[in-house]
Every structure is written in C-alpha cells, then in structure tokens.
Computed example of a mutant assay.
Amino acid sequence: MKRKELQKNEIGDFYWRYINLIPEDASLIETLEKNTAEICHFLLSLPQEKWEYRYENEKWSILEVIQHIIDTERVFQYRALSIARGEEKPLPGFDHDQYVKASEAGTRKGAELVEEFRTLRKAAIWMYRNFNEKMLSRQGTVNGNPASPRAIAFVMAGHALHHKNIINERYL
C-alpha cells in the first residue's frame, strides 16, 4: 500500500503534518524500514556532548526527544493493533509532556535509546507485515479523531522525521 492511497478521513487533520513528510509513492513497509535506518543513523551520528543539550531551559534534551519518539511509537503501535483487531471503543490521547517528565530519559545512554527505538520499530514492521488489507483499512477513533492502522504507520514514520528535523534545526 502506498502513502498516496490514504484518504483524508483515515486520520485526524493534525496528523497530516507528519504524513506529508513522507513521499506520496512510498510504500508502507519500505517506509518503516528506511525510516528506521535513517533515524537510527542520524541519531548515532550526533556528538556525544549534544545528548543532554536543550536549546531553551524548558525544552526537552535530545535524550528526552528520543524517549518521546519511543513512547509515541508504543502508543501508535497499540492504537494500530487495537483498531486492526476490531476495537470499537474510542482510544484515548496521552500527555506526551507528562510521559517525558516521568521517563527519566536523562539517566539513559543515547545509544541504548536508539537501540530500543530500532527494536521497537522492528516489532512494528513485523506487526504491519501480518496485517492484511482489511485490517489495515479498519477505522477506529483515537483521541476523538478517525484513524486507520495504515494511516498510523505513516504517522509513525513522519513523527520520527519531524523530530529529526527539529533536532537539525534547533539542537545542532
């Protein structure tokens, strides 16, 4: 399935800012695989002294940004699985600031966080490989918005790219 096949009603408007970072001709599994390699390579290339850097006092460190990506991936994967399996109840949102605050990401090593992201994303790829078209296209409700597992996959990749771009623009 290609990104250009997504319909506007498959995900809330807010999430299109992430999806639009992915080329229209990109296929779902290939996008997740290439995105994983790109994000991991980028993060591992960062200078060690930058991991705890904040571009403003109240902003997240790079370690916290990576932990945020990981936490969000877990939430997205749960949402995709729930909808693919036919969950009819609306799924809640989450407070990403609270998650980062509680994560204690500053006590972790950057390479460890990157490996956790890589492992988590591999699990997502396996999950998506085993969803058929019916599962991928199911509609659910997430944080009051429509969502399909296939749209969530492209959101995951775009969300990671979004944070890569922020690190490039504000941290380096």
Rank of each mutant, 00 (worst) to 15 (best):
L43D: 01
L44P: 02
L44T: 09
S45F: 06
E49P: 00
E49N: 15
K50S: 12
W51Y: 15
W51D: 13
E52M: 12
Y55V: 04
Y55A: 03
E56D: 10
E56A: 15
N57Q: 14
E58F: 12
K59H: 05
K59Q: 14
I62R: 09
I62F: 05
L63Q: 13
L63E: 02
I66M: 15
I66G: 06
Q67M: 13
H68Q: 03
I69Q: 06
I69D: 06
I69T: 09
I70H: 09
D71Q: 05
D71N: 07
F76E: 03
Q77I: 09
Q77D: 08
Q77T: 10
A80D: 06
L81H: 08
A84C: 01
R85C: 10
R85A: 06
E87R: 15
E87H: 10
E88F: 07
G93N: 04
F94N: 09
H96R: 14
Q98P: 01
Q98K: 14
Y99R: 00
K101I: 08
A105P: 00
A105I: 01
G106A: 03
G106E: 11
T107M: 07
R108A: 07
L113A: 04
V114D: 05
E115Y: 07
E116H: 02
R118W: 02
R118G: 01
L120W: 03
L120T: 11
R121E: 08
R121H: 12
K122A: 10
A123D: 10
I125T: 00
I125R: 01
M127F: 11
Y128I: 10
Y128S: 07
N130L: 09
F131Y: 13
E133A: 14
K134L: 11
M135N: 09
M135L: 10
M135V: 05
L136C: 11
S137Q: 14
R138A: 10
Q139V: 08
G140T: 11
G140L: 12
G140M: 12
T141Y: 07
P146S: 06
S148C: 13
P149M: 03
I152N: 00
I152A: 00
I152Y: 03
A153Q: 03
A153F: 07
